[in-house]
Design a protein around this nucleic acid. Sequence first.
DNA 1: CGACCATTTGATATGGATCAAGCGATGTGG
DNA 2: CCACATCGCTTGATCCATATCAAATGGTCG
Lengths: 236, 236
Amino acid sequence: MSMQHGLQNGSSRQVAARTRNESAPATQAFMGSNKLTGTPMPFSRNTQIYGESEPADYLYKVVSGVIRTYRVLADGRRQIGGFYLPGDFFGLEVGDDYTFSADAIADSKVLAIKRSALTALATHDNEVAQLLWKLTANELQHVQDHTLLLVETAQERVSGFLMEMAKRALVGNQIELPMSRQDIADYLGLTIETVSRTLTHLEKTSAIELPSSRVVVLLKRSTLNQLDGSARYYAA
Amino acid sequence: MSMQHGLQNGSSRQVAARTRNESAPATQAFMGSNKLTGTPMPFSRNTQIYGESEPADYLYKVVSGVIRTYRVLADGRRQIGGFYLPGDFFGLEVGDDYTFSADAIADSKVLAIKRSALTALATHDNEVAQLLWKLTANELQHVQDHTLLLVETAQERVSGFLMEMAKRALVGNQIELPMSRQDIADYLGLTIETVSRTLTHLEKTSAIELPSSRVVVLLKRSTLNQLDGSARYYAA
DNA sequence: CGACCATTTGATATGGATCAAGCGATGTGG
DNA sequence: CCACATCGCTTGATCCATATCAAATGGTCG
Protein backbone atom coordinates (compact mmCIF):
# COMPACT_ATOMS: atom_id res chain seq x y z
CA MET A 1 0.00 0.00 0.00
CA SER A 2 0.92 3.62 -0.07
CA MET A 3 4.12 3.72 1.82
CA GLN A 4 5.94 6.57 3.23
CA HIS A 5 8.53 6.30 5.92
CA GLY A 6 6.37 7.90 8.47
CA LEU A 7 9.27 8.56 10.76
CA GLN A 8 10.99 11.41 9.03
CA ASN A 9 7.70 12.46 7.64
CA GLY A 10 6.21 12.96 10.98
CA SER A 11 8.95 15.18 12.15
CA SER A 12 8.79 17.41 9.13
CA ARG A 13 5.16 17.91 9.79
CA GLN A 14 3.69 20.29 12.25
CA VAL A 15 2.23 18.23 14.95
CA ALA A 16 -1.23 19.44 14.38
CA ALA A 17 -2.61 18.10 17.57
CA ARG A 18 -5.95 17.60 16.07
CA THR A 19 -8.20 16.70 18.88
CA ARG A 20 -10.05 14.08 17.07
CA ASN A 21 -13.75 14.37 17.38
CA GLU A 22 -14.40 12.61 20.57
CA SER A 23 -16.38 9.46 20.89
CA ALA A 24 -14.81 6.88 18.71
CA PRO A 25 -16.95 3.80 18.21
CA ALA A 26 -19.56 6.43 18.34
CA THR A 27 -22.53 6.51 20.53
CA GLN A 28 -20.84 7.57 23.68
CA ALA A 29 -22.99 7.86 26.73
CA PHE A 30 -23.53 11.52 26.15
CA MET A 31 -27.06 11.02 27.21
CA GLY A 32 -28.50 9.13 30.06
CA SER A 33 -31.90 9.80 28.59
CA ASN A 34 -34.27 8.40 31.13
CA LYS A 35 -36.61 7.73 28.25
CA LEU A 36 -34.54 4.84 27.11
CA THR A 37 -35.65 2.03 29.28
CA GLY A 38 -34.80 -1.51 28.51
CA THR A 39 -34.12 -4.95 29.80
CA PRO A 40 -30.67 -5.68 31.20
CA MET A 41 -29.24 -8.81 29.66
CA PRO A 42 -26.03 -10.70 30.37
CA PHE A 43 -23.94 -12.24 27.61
CA SER A 44 -20.93 -14.34 28.26
CA ARG A 45 -17.65 -14.11 26.40
CA ASN A 46 -17.84 -14.99 22.71
CA THR A 47 -21.58 -15.37 22.54
CA GLN A 48 -23.59 -13.73 19.84
CA ILE A 49 -26.07 -10.99 20.60
CA TYR A 50 -27.53 -10.84 17.14
CA GLY A 51 -26.60 -11.92 13.65
CA GLU A 52 -26.51 -9.85 10.52
CA SER A 53 -29.67 -9.90 8.43
CA GLU A 54 -31.77 -10.76 11.45
CA PRO A 55 -34.67 -8.40 12.12
CA ALA A 56 -33.34 -5.41 14.05
CA ASP A 57 -35.83 -5.39 16.89
CA TYR A 58 -33.61 -3.93 19.57
CA LEU A 59 -31.20 -1.10 20.13
CA TYR A 60 -28.55 -1.94 22.71
CA LYS A 61 -26.59 -0.01 25.24
CA VAL A 62 -23.49 -1.45 26.83
CA VAL A 63 -23.62 -1.54 30.60
CA SER A 64 -20.42 -3.47 31.21
CA GLY A 65 -18.00 -5.51 29.14
CA VAL A 66 -17.12 -5.05 25.48
CA ILE A 67 -19.00 -5.78 22.28
CA ARG A 68 -17.74 -6.13 18.74
CA THR A 69 -19.79 -5.82 15.57
CA TYR A 70 -18.64 -7.51 12.39
CA ARG A 71 -19.42 -8.86 8.97
CA VAL A 72 -18.01 -12.00 7.42
CA LEU A 73 -16.80 -11.58 3.87
CA ALA A 74 -17.34 -14.09 1.14
CA ASP A 75 -13.79 -15.43 1.42
CA GLY A 76 -14.21 -16.03 5.12
CA ARG A 77 -12.35 -13.00 6.34
CA ARG A 78 -14.05 -11.01 9.02
CA GLN A 79 -14.32 -7.28 9.12
CA ILE A 80 -14.91 -5.71 12.49
CA GLY A 81 -17.03 -2.58 12.39
CA GLY A 82 -16.34 -1.37 15.87
CA PHE A 83 -15.76 -2.07 19.53
CA TYR A 84 -18.37 -0.87 21.98
CA LEU A 85 -17.55 0.00 25.56
CA PRO A 86 -19.81 0.77 28.53
CA GLY A 87 -22.07 3.70 27.70
CA ASP A 88 -21.97 3.04 23.96
CA PHE A 89 -25.02 2.19 21.93
CA PHE A 90 -24.96 -0.39 19.18
CA GLY A 91 -27.42 -2.15 16.93
CA LEU A 92 -29.13 1.01 15.74
CA GLU A 93 -30.56 0.41 12.29
CA VAL A 94 -32.80 2.37 10.00
CA GLY A 95 -33.56 -0.54 7.73
CA ASP A 96 -35.42 -3.61 8.91
CA ASP A 97 -32.44 -5.85 9.56
CA TYR A 98 -29.09 -5.70 11.27
CA THR A 99 -26.27 -5.07 8.84
CA PHE A 100 -23.63 -6.46 11.18
CA SER A 101 -23.46 -9.26 13.69
CA ALA A 102 -22.63 -8.44 17.28
CA ASP A 103 -21.09 -10.48 20.00
CA ALA A 104 -19.58 -10.11 23.41
CA ILE A 105 -15.79 -10.05 23.56
CA ALA A 106 -15.81 -10.41 27.32
CA ASP A 107 -18.61 -11.25 29.70
CA SER A 108 -20.92 -8.28 29.30
CA LYS A 109 -24.18 -6.75 30.32
CA VAL A 110 -26.24 -4.83 27.83
CA LEU A 111 -29.51 -3.00 27.94
CA ALA A 112 -31.92 -4.08 25.19
CA ILE A 113 -34.27 -1.32 24.14
CA LYS A 114 -37.25 -2.32 22.05
CA ARG A 115 -37.11 -0.59 18.75
CA SER A 116 -40.83 -0.45 18.19
CA ALA A 117 -41.18 1.46 21.44
CA LEU A 118 -38.41 3.80 20.44
CA THR A 119 -39.74 4.69 17.04
CA ALA A 120 -43.20 5.14 18.48
CA LEU A 121 -41.78 7.54 21.00
CA ALA A 122 -39.77 9.36 18.38
CA THR A 123 -42.78 10.26 16.28
CA HIS A 124 -44.11 12.61 18.90
CA ASP A 125 -41.17 13.18 21.18
CA ASN A 126 -38.66 15.33 19.47
CA GLU A 127 -35.97 14.75 22.00
CA VAL A 128 -35.97 11.06 21.29
CA ALA A 129 -35.95 11.68 17.56
CA GLN A 130 -32.94 13.93 18.02
CA LEU A 131 -31.22 11.30 20.08
CA LEU A 132 -31.68 8.65 17.42
CA TRP A 133 -30.32 11.02 14.86
CA LYS A 134 -27.29 11.87 16.99
CA LEU A 135 -26.57 8.21 17.58
CA THR A 136 -26.63 7.59 13.86
CA ALA A 137 -24.44 10.61 13.24
CA ASN A 138 -21.90 9.46 15.81
CA GLU A 139 -21.76 6.12 14.18
CA LEU A 140 -21.25 7.82 10.84
CA GLN A 141 -18.42 9.87 12.26
CA HIS A 142 -16.74 6.78 13.55
CA VAL A 143 -17.07 4.83 10.33
CA GLN A 144 -15.58 7.72 8.43
CA ASP A 145 -12.57 7.79 10.70
CA HIS A 146 -12.31 4.04 10.34
CA THR A 147 -12.36 4.39 6.57
CA LEU A 148 -9.47 6.78 6.79
CA LEU A 149 -7.47 4.30 8.85
CA LEU A 150 -7.94 1.64 6.21
CA VAL A 151 -5.99 3.50 3.56
CA GLU A 152 -2.97 4.06 5.73
CA THR A 153 0.17 2.02 6.39
CA ALA A 154 0.25 -0.72 8.98
CA GLN A 155 2.14 1.49 11.40
CA GLU A 156 -0.32 4.31 10.98
CA ARG A 157 -3.28 1.99 11.42
CA VAL A 158 -1.95 0.46 14.60
CA SER A 159 -0.97 3.87 15.99
CA GLY A 160 -4.37 5.21 15.05
CA PHE A 161 -6.03 2.30 16.78
CA LEU A 162 -4.00 2.89 19.93
CA MET A 163 -4.89 6.57 19.90
CA GLU A 164 -8.53 5.67 19.48
CA MET A 165 -8.37 3.29 22.41
CA ALA A 166 -6.43 5.83 24.42
CA LYS A 167 -9.32 8.24 24.13
CA ARG A 168 -11.69 5.67 25.43
CA ALA A 169 -9.97 3.33 27.79
CA LEU A 170 -6.89 5.06 29.12
CA VAL A 171 -6.06 4.51 32.76
CA GLY A 172 -3.10 6.58 33.78
CA ASN A 173 -0.96 6.20 30.72
CA GLN A 174 -1.86 2.66 30.00
CA ILE A 175 -4.52 0.98 27.96
CA GLU A 176 -5.96 -2.36 28.67
CA LEU A 177 -6.96 -4.01 25.46
CA PRO A 178 -10.07 -6.10 25.88
CA MET A 179 -9.76 -7.64 22.43
CA SER A 180 -7.44 -10.18 20.84
CA ARG A 181 -4.82 -9.53 18.19
CA GLN A 182 -7.14 -11.17 15.72
CA ASP A 183 -9.87 -8.68 16.60
CA ILE A 184 -7.48 -5.78 16.16
CA ALA A 185 -6.27 -7.21 12.87
CA ASP A 186 -9.80 -7.62 11.57
CA TYR A 187 -10.63 -4.09 12.60
CA LEU A 188 -7.59 -2.67 10.84
CA GLY A 189 -7.66 -4.86 7.75
CA LEU A 190 -4.29 -6.42 8.61
CA THR A 191 -3.10 -9.85 9.67
CA ILE A 192 -2.36 -10.74 13.27
CA GLU A 193 1.30 -11.17 12.38
CA THR A 194 1.49 -7.64 11.06
CA VAL A 195 -0.29 -6.24 14.09
CA SER A 196 2.04 -8.14 16.38
CA ARG A 197 5.16 -7.10 14.52
CA THR A 198 4.06 -3.49 14.42
CA LEU A 199 3.46 -3.44 18.16
CA THR A 200 6.84 -5.03 18.73
CA HIS A 201 8.40 -2.42 16.53
CA LEU A 202 6.69 0.40 18.43
CA GLU A 203 8.06 -1.11 21.60
CA LYS A 204 11.58 -1.37 20.18
CA THR A 205 11.44 2.28 19.22
CA SER A 206 10.24 3.09 22.74
CA ALA A 207 6.93 4.56 21.72
CA ILE A 208 5.11 2.03 23.86
CA GLU A 209 5.77 -0.71 26.36
CA LEU A 210 4.07 -4.09 26.40
CA PRO A 211 4.09 -5.49 29.92
CA SER A 212 1.72 -8.15 28.70
CA SER A 213 0.03 -8.73 25.38
CA ARG A 214 -3.18 -7.10 26.56
CA VAL A 215 -1.63 -4.05 28.17
CA VAL A 216 -0.07 -1.15 26.31
CA VAL A 217 1.78 1.62 28.13
CA LEU A 218 2.02 4.79 26.12
CA LEU A 219 5.48 6.27 26.40
CA LYS A 220 5.53 8.78 23.58
CA ARG A 221 2.07 9.90 22.67
CA SER A 222 3.61 12.48 20.37
CA THR A 223 5.31 9.80 18.31
CA LEU A 224 2.14 7.80 18.04
CA ASN A 225 0.21 10.89 17.12
CA GLN A 226 2.65 11.61 14.37
CA LEU A 227 2.38 8.10 13.09
CA ASP A 228 -1.37 8.28 13.28
CA GLY A 229 -1.95 9.90 9.93
CA SER A 230 -5.67 10.17 10.43
CA ALA A 231 -5.20 12.47 13.36
CA ARG A 232 -4.11 15.18 10.99
CA TYR A 233 -5.55 14.44 7.64
CA TYR A 234 -6.10 18.06 6.75
CA ALA A 235 -2.68 18.12 5.21
CA ALA A 236 -0.25 20.88 4.56
CA MET B 1 -8.32 24.00 -18.49
CA SER B 2 -11.53 25.85 -18.12
CA MET B 3 -12.59 23.62 -20.92
CA GLN B 4 -14.26 20.30 -20.73
CA HIS B 5 -14.92 17.81 -23.36
CA GLY B 6 -18.56 18.07 -22.59
CA LEU B 7 -19.25 15.52 -25.27
CA GLN B 8 -21.63 12.98 -23.88
CA ASN B 9 -21.67 14.63 -20.53
CA GLY B 10 -24.65 16.79 -21.10
CA SER B 11 -26.77 14.11 -22.65
CA SER B 12 -25.93 11.37 -20.22
CA ARG B 13 -26.95 13.55 -17.38
CA GLN B 14 -30.62 13.77 -18.15
CA VAL B 15 -30.78 10.08 -18.75
CA ALA B 16 -29.03 9.31 -15.50
CA ALA B 17 -31.45 11.50 -13.66
CA ARG B 18 -34.33 9.30 -14.49
CA THR B 19 -32.68 5.91 -14.59
CA ARG B 20 -31.46 5.83 -11.07
CA ASN B 21 -33.45 3.71 -8.78
CA GLU B 22 -31.07 3.00 -5.99
CA SER B 23 -29.57 4.50 -2.93
CA ALA B 24 -25.89 3.98 -3.32
CA PRO B 25 -23.76 6.97 -2.27
CA ALA B 26 -26.68 7.44 -0.03
CA THR B 27 -29.00 10.33 0.16
CA GLN B 28 -30.99 9.50 -2.87
CA ALA B 29 -33.90 11.64 -3.82
CA PHE B 30 -36.32 9.31 -2.21
CA MET B 31 -38.14 12.34 -1.06
CA GLY B 32 -39.03 15.37 -3.05
CA SER B 33 -40.05 16.95 0.22
CA ASN B 34 -41.45 20.28 -0.81
CA LYS B 35 -40.23 21.55 2.50
CA LEU B 36 -36.68 21.62 1.30
CA THR B 37 -36.42 24.86 -0.53
CA GLY B 38 -33.11 26.32 -1.50
CA THR B 39 -31.16 28.44 -3.88
CA PRO B 40 -30.02 26.87 -7.13
CA MET B 41 -26.32 27.49 -7.68
CA PRO B 42 -24.08 26.66 -10.63
CA PHE B 43 -20.54 25.40 -10.16
CA SER B 44 -18.15 24.83 -12.99
CA ARG B 45 -15.89 21.85 -13.37
CA ASN B 46 -13.24 21.53 -10.70
CA THR B 47 -14.43 24.35 -8.52
CA GLN B 48 -14.85 23.93 -4.82
CA ILE B 49 -18.26 24.13 -3.18
CA TYR B 50 -16.96 24.08 0.36
CA GLY B 51 -13.82 23.13 2.20
CA GLU B 52 -13.44 20.82 5.13
CA SER B 53 -13.52 22.50 8.53
CA GLU B 54 -15.53 25.39 7.19
CA PRO B 55 -18.79 26.08 9.01
CA ALA B 56 -21.43 23.75 7.64
CA ASP B 57 -24.13 26.28 6.90
CA TYR B 58 -25.77 24.51 3.99
CA LEU B 59 -27.07 21.15 2.99
CA TYR B 60 -26.85 20.57 -0.75
CA LYS B 61 -28.85 18.64 -3.26
CA VAL B 62 -27.47 17.86 -6.69
CA VAL B 63 -29.65 19.06 -9.54
CA SER B 64 -27.29 18.23 -12.39
CA GLY B 65 -23.65 17.27 -12.77
CA VAL B 66 -21.49 15.31 -10.34
CA ILE B 67 -19.93 16.23 -7.03
CA ARG B 68 -17.12 14.56 -5.11
CA THR B 69 -16.36 14.91 -1.42
CA TYR B 70 -12.86 14.32 -0.12
CA ARG B 71 -10.27 14.77 2.57
CA VAL B 72 -6.59 15.40 2.05
CA LEU B 73 -4.34 13.28 4.21
CA ALA B 74 -1.22 14.53 5.90
CA ASP B 75 1.05 12.98 3.28
CA GLY B 76 -0.81 14.71 0.49
CA ARG B 77 -2.86 11.78 -0.64
CA ARG B 78 -6.52 12.42 -1.17
CA GLN B 79 -9.33 10.21 -0.02
CA ILE B 80 -12.61 10.55 -1.81
CA GLY B 81 -15.65 9.97 0.37
CA GLY B 82 -18.22 9.68 -2.34
CA PHE B 83 -19.59 10.75 -5.69
CA TYR B 84 -22.96 12.49 -5.72
CA LEU B 85 -25.28 12.39 -8.69
CA PRO B 86 -28.49 14.27 -9.45
CA GLY B 87 -31.00 13.73 -6.68
CA ASP B 88 -28.34 13.03 -4.06
CA PHE B 89 -27.84 15.16 -0.99
CA PHE B 90 -24.41 16.03 0.35
CA GLY B 91 -22.91 18.28 2.99
CA LEU B 92 -25.16 17.08 5.79
CA GLU B 93 -23.34 17.51 9.08
CA VAL B 94 -24.34 17.17 12.68
CA GLY B 95 -21.28 18.94 14.02
CA ASP B 96 -20.58 22.58 13.30
CA ASP B 97 -18.15 22.13 10.43
CA TYR B 98 -17.84 20.17 7.25
CA THR B 99 -15.70 17.10 7.67
CA PHE B 100 -14.99 16.80 3.97
CA SER B 101 -14.40 19.21 1.13
CA ALA B 102 -16.69 19.11 -1.87
CA ASP B 103 -16.18 20.11 -5.43
CA ALA B 104 -17.79 19.77 -8.81
CA ILE B 105 -16.34 17.09 -11.07
CA ALA B 106 -18.26 18.39 -14.06
CA ASP B 107 -20.22 21.59 -14.52
CA SER B 108 -23.03 21.18 -12.04
CA LYS B 109 -26.05 22.77 -10.50
CA VAL B 110 -26.83 22.27 -6.84
CA LEU B 111 -29.54 23.42 -4.52
CA ALA B 112 -28.19 25.04 -1.35
CA ILE B 113 -30.51 24.58 1.62
CA LYS B 114 -29.86 26.73 4.65
CA ARG B 115 -29.09 24.57 7.61
CA SER B 116 -30.40 26.95 10.22
CA ALA B 117 -33.78 26.88 8.49
CA LEU B 118 -33.69 23.10 8.34
CA THR B 119 -32.89 22.50 11.96
CA ALA B 120 -35.45 25.06 13.01
CA LEU B 121 -38.04 23.21 10.97
CA ALA B 122 -36.95 19.87 12.33
CA THR B 123 -37.60 20.80 15.94
CA HIS B 124 -41.34 20.94 15.41
CA ASP B 125 -41.84 19.19 12.11
CA ASN B 126 -41.33 15.54 12.60
CA GLU B 127 -41.30 14.74 8.94
CA VAL B 128 -38.28 16.95 8.40
CA ALA B 129 -36.55 15.46 11.42
CA GLN B 130 -37.16 12.01 9.97
CA LEU B 131 -35.78 13.10 6.63
CA LEU B 132 -32.56 14.40 8.16
CA TRP B 133 -32.20 11.17 10.03
CA LYS B 134 -32.76 9.11 6.91
CA LEU B 135 -30.23 11.12 4.97
CA THR B 136 -27.67 10.54 7.69
CA ALA B 137 -28.51 6.85 7.77
CA ASN B 138 -28.13 6.55 4.02
CA GLU B 139 -24.77 8.15 4.21
CA LEU B 140 -23.83 5.76 6.99
CA GLN B 141 -24.90 2.83 4.87
CA HIS B 142 -22.78 4.03 2.01
CA VAL B 143 -19.68 4.63 4.12
CA GLN B 144 -20.01 1.15 5.57
CA ASP B 145 -20.10 -0.37 2.11
CA HIS B 146 -17.14 1.77 1.17
CA THR B 147 -15.25 0.52 4.20
CA LEU B 148 -15.84 -3.00 3.05
CA LEU B 149 -14.43 -2.22 -0.38
CA LEU B 150 -11.24 -0.90 1.15
CA VAL B 151 -10.20 -4.23 2.63
CA GLU B 152 -10.58 -6.15 -0.61
CA THR B 153 -8.20 -6.85 -3.48
CA ALA B 154 -7.74 -4.38 -6.31
CA GLN B 155 -9.90 -6.47 -8.60
CA GLU B 156 -12.68 -6.67 -6.06
CA ARG B 157 -12.53 -2.97 -5.39
CA VAL B 158 -12.73 -2.03 -9.03
CA SER B 159 -15.51 -4.53 -9.66
CA GLY B 160 -17.33 -3.25 -6.62
CA PHE B 161 -16.98 0.27 -7.85
CA LEU B 162 -18.37 -0.67 -11.25
CA MET B 163 -21.31 -2.43 -9.63
CA GLU B 164 -21.96 0.61 -7.52
CA MET B 165 -21.91 2.84 -10.56
CA ALA B 166 -24.05 0.38 -12.45
CA LYS B 167 -26.75 0.78 -9.83
CA ARG B 168 -26.71 4.50 -10.28
CA ALA B 169 -25.72 5.46 -13.76
CA LEU B 170 -26.39 2.52 -16.02
CA VAL B 171 -27.78 3.28 -19.48
CA GLY B 172 -28.56 0.09 -21.30
CA ASN B 173 -25.61 -2.00 -20.29
CA GLN B 174 -23.11 0.76 -20.26
CA ILE B 175 -21.86 3.16 -17.68
CA GLU B 176 -20.52 6.55 -18.40
CA LEU B 177 -17.94 7.45 -15.83
CA PRO B 178 -18.03 11.13 -15.02
CA MET B 179 -14.84 10.95 -12.98
CA SER B 180 -11.17 10.52 -13.82
CA ARG B 181 -9.00 7.52 -13.07
CA GLN B 182 -7.40 9.52 -10.32
CA ASP B 183 -10.80 10.09 -8.73
CA ILE B 184 -11.57 6.39 -8.89
CA ALA B 185 -8.17 5.54 -7.47
CA ASP B 186 -8.61 7.94 -4.57
CA TYR B 187 -12.03 6.52 -3.88
CA LEU B 188 -10.73 2.95 -3.84
CA GLY B 189 -7.45 3.57 -2.07
CA LEU B 190 -5.43 2.45 -5.10
CA THR B 191 -3.13 4.15 -7.59
CA ILE B 192 -4.27 5.19 -11.05
CA GLU B 193 -1.91 2.62 -12.54
CA THR B 194 -3.57 -0.17 -10.62
CA VAL B 195 -7.05 1.03 -11.55
CA SER B 196 -6.04 1.24 -15.18
CA ARG B 197 -4.39 -2.16 -15.22
CA THR B 198 -7.35 -3.74 -13.47
CA LEU B 199 -9.79 -2.32 -15.98
CA THR B 200 -7.57 -3.52 -18.80
CA HIS B 201 -7.49 -6.93 -17.23
CA LEU B 202 -11.26 -7.04 -16.90
CA GLU B 203 -11.46 -6.15 -20.55
CA LYS B 204 -8.99 -8.87 -21.53
CA THR B 205 -11.06 -11.40 -19.64
CA SER B 206 -14.17 -10.12 -21.44
CA ALA B 207 -15.98 -9.00 -18.32
CA ILE B 208 -16.20 -5.49 -19.70
CA GLU B 209 -15.47 -3.48 -22.80
CA LEU B 210 -13.83 -0.06 -22.86
CA PRO B 211 -14.88 1.77 -26.00
CA SER B 212 -13.29 4.86 -24.49
CA SER B 213 -11.69 5.52 -21.15
CA ARG B 214 -14.83 7.07 -19.75
CA VAL B 215 -17.26 4.44 -20.97
CA VAL B 216 -17.57 0.94 -19.58
CA VAL B 217 -19.77 -1.67 -21.20
CA LEU B 218 -20.76 -4.46 -18.87
CA LEU B 219 -20.53 -7.80 -20.60
CA LYS B 220 -20.64 -10.25 -17.72
CA ARG B 221 -22.35 -8.78 -14.73
CA SER B 222 -22.17 -12.17 -13.08
CA THR B 223 -18.39 -12.21 -13.27
CA LEU B 224 -18.16 -8.74 -11.84
CA ASN B 225 -20.61 -9.65 -9.14
CA GLN B 226 -18.51 -12.61 -8.19
CA LEU B 227 -15.40 -10.48 -8.10
CA ASP B 228 -17.22 -7.91 -6.08
CA GLY B 229 -16.75 -9.50 -2.70
CA SER B 230 -18.82 -6.90 -0.93
CA ALA B 231 -21.91 -7.88 -2.86
CA ARG B 232 -22.12 -11.03 -0.85
CA TYR B 233 -20.16 -10.53 2.28
CA TYR B 234 -22.54 -12.69 4.24
CA ALA B 235 -20.37 -15.62 3.42
CA ALA B 236 -21.06 -19.29 3.10
C1' DC C 1 2.71 -31.27 34.28
C1' DG C 2 0.62 -31.36 29.72
C1' DA C 3 -2.80 -29.66 26.34
C1' DC C 4 -4.43 -25.79 24.28
C1' DC C 5 -4.67 -21.28 22.61
C1' DA C 6 -2.85 -16.66 21.79
C1' DT C 7 1.05 -14.32 20.53
C1' DT C 8 5.53 -13.62 18.69
C1' DT C 9 9.21 -14.40 15.52
C1' DG C 10 11.33 -16.03 11.22
C1' DA C 11 11.63 -17.02 6.10
C1' DT C 12 9.65 -16.38 1.82
C1' DA C 13 6.16 -14.93 -1.65
C1' DT C 14 3.37 -11.55 -3.88
C1' DG C 15 0.02 -7.78 -4.96
C1' DG C 16 0.17 -3.38 -5.67
C1' DA C 17 3.21 0.90 -5.36
C1' DT C 18 6.65 3.37 -7.55
C1' DC C 19 9.41 4.93 -11.25
C1' DA C 20 9.53 5.65 -16.05
C1' DA C 21 8.13 5.65 -20.79
C1' DG C 22 4.84 5.68 -24.43
C1' DC C 23 0.36 7.01 -26.60
C1' DG C 24 -3.78 9.08 -28.11
C1' DA C 25 -6.93 12.89 -27.81
C1' DT C 26 -7.57 17.87 -27.26
C1' DG C 27 -6.26 22.38 -27.65
C1' DT C 28 -2.94 26.30 -29.21
C1' DG C 29 -0.41 29.28 -31.85
C1' DG C 30 1.97 30.09 -36.12
C1' DC D 1 -4.28 23.24 -41.26
C1' DC D 2 -0.40 21.57 -39.30
C1' DA D 3 3.55 21.05 -35.83
C1' DC D 4 3.56 21.03 -30.89
C1' DA D 5 2.60 21.23 -26.12
C1' DT D 6 -0.53 19.28 -22.64
C1' DC D 7 -3.25 16.09 -20.30
C1' DG D 8 -5.28 11.80 -19.06
C1' DC D 9 -4.54 7.19 -19.58
C1' DT D 10 -2.01 2.95 -20.43
C1' DT D 11 1.88 -0.12 -20.28
C1' DG D 12 6.35 -1.85 -18.65
C1' DA D 13 10.13 -2.84 -15.15
C1' DT D 14 11.35 -2.98 -10.58
C1' DC D 15 10.76 -2.58 -5.59
C1' DC D 16 8.85 -3.15 -1.13
C1' DA D 17 5.18 -3.53 2.57
C1' DT D 18 2.46 -6.80 4.00
C1' DA D 19 0.59 -11.51 3.39
C1' DT D 20 1.53 -16.20 3.82
C1' DC D 21 3.61 -20.22 5.57
C1' DA D 22 5.91 -22.22 9.40
C1' DA D 23 7.76 -22.77 13.87
C1' DA D 24 8.87 -21.35 18.55
C1' DT D 25 7.37 -19.28 22.90
C1' DG D 26 4.37 -18.17 26.57
C1' DG D 27 0.28 -18.08 29.29
C1' DT D 28 -3.88 -20.47 31.23
C1' DC D 29 -6.42 -24.06 33.03
C1' DG D 30 -7.52 -28.85 33.73
